[in-house]
Design a protein around this nucleic acid. Sequence first.
RNA 1: GACCCUAUCGUCCAGCGGUUAGGACACCGCCCUUUCACGGCGGAUACACGGGUUCGAAUCCCGUUAGGGUCGCCA
Length: 441
Amino acid sequence: MSLPVRVRFAPSPTGYLHVGGARTALFNWLYARHTGGKFILRVEDTDKARNTAEAVQVIYDGMRWLGLDWDEGPLVGGDCGPYFQSEREAVYQRYFDKLKDAGFLYDDGGAWRFRFARELVEVDDMICGKVPFDFRVLEITPDMTIRRPDGSWIFHFVNVVDDIEMGITHVIRGEDHLSNTPKHLQLYRALGVEPPRFGHIPLILNKDGSKMSKRDQGASVASYMEGGYVPAAVRNYLCLLGWSPKDDREKLELDEIVRLFEPSKINRKAAQFDIEKCNWLNWQYLVAMSLDEFTDAALPFIEKAGILYGTRAALLPVLALVKEKIKQLPETPNWLPYFFTEEFPFDPDAAEKLRKPGALETLAALRDGYASLPEWTAAALEAKLKELATARGVKAGELVHPARAAVSGRSVGPSLYHMLEVLGRERVLARMAGAWEQFAQ
RNA sequence: GACCCUAUCGUCCAGCGGUUAGGACACCGCCCUUUCACGGCGGAUACACGGGUUCGAAUCCCGUUAGGGUCGCCA
């Protein structure tokens, strides 16, 4: 009855992958996986000027990063290749001759135009429903050029020809193409081919409602790759822009999304991109990571910051400690320095804590208590500190704050007792003594 | 300008003729707490406007307004 689904993503290699394009690819991919169909990648590189190997690589990298594997296309091959438009000249020529012989084309100053049928054309869209277009008035729908005087091809023509040749059954693309669709429909009819089903997804806007362009924050997939985002989180967030499982769930496993995805359920309203929410979802994925996964993900940032952590074995307990504080991977190194060097600076806030009257005396008392502590564990460290606080008639905070400042140079950080445990007795006692020397005057 | 799409908290997403209009991000307050976070509890904030249809409209229809898209020898 209905053919197996074949969908495609057909980007132009411009040197970067826009999140809007990525979402289009994602929705196509989801539909293919949902239906058990094929997802095809086709590179629309008819504009030779910007077609470079690097630009194509950006597309591959972005798609791979998001986990959007293609069943046919560059690198993987397929029965309908080549998958670069620049290599399909003969195909286009064949279709061109067909249209020309049938009398649909005419020469206009060297360029070739396709003569539209002057009638009403209705697009039956999977997402937008039936949308009427009127081609009866020539002035507002001039015949479209499909070939330039230099022999090169225009997008509308090659796009349709390739979709025919590649057996595309469903075209899911950006809403900016909705108004182009009746033109494409006319081409299909002239060629005597049954058109695919179309589904036009709304565009992604900036948070303030303006158009999202290259320069805008978060517009490029590469920015997420470089920013240490979890690919699954970005993918998840993109899914939620215009689509939902309808039951208020937000963090969803991919197979669950594949199972539930339905193009007709895609929202018709343009969505505004909220990086804050994307960050929150990304954090949800970070929290869900095991220590090993987290370490692998954070390592590039730790190394880039030049943190001399020694071995992975030395790093693990520290990351286990600070993991809960980290909202974004790139900030990881900020939590680490004092674990791996004695040359850490004192923040103004921390210094102030040590200059408070009596701070150094309580610190000294704590140091003495800790020096003789039989067991160096977080629990024992906590018990001792509280015992001393009680003995001195002060709140625990009176001891905690100077201690934290003395051993880390910071006023904020992870749980003090666990931090002391990881630091070890030797370093803790030395740093407490050092703080006394540095701040007593 | 013409044509097309869209319109629920600031944002994303529910809601499809009868709901105290729900959830999430962000925001505010309280609690927890050694800090910052986390977490828990609570709060403020929305059906763009005007007409219909209906016993009854966020939900259906028509206008207006606003936003977006398309009108290329770009893709």
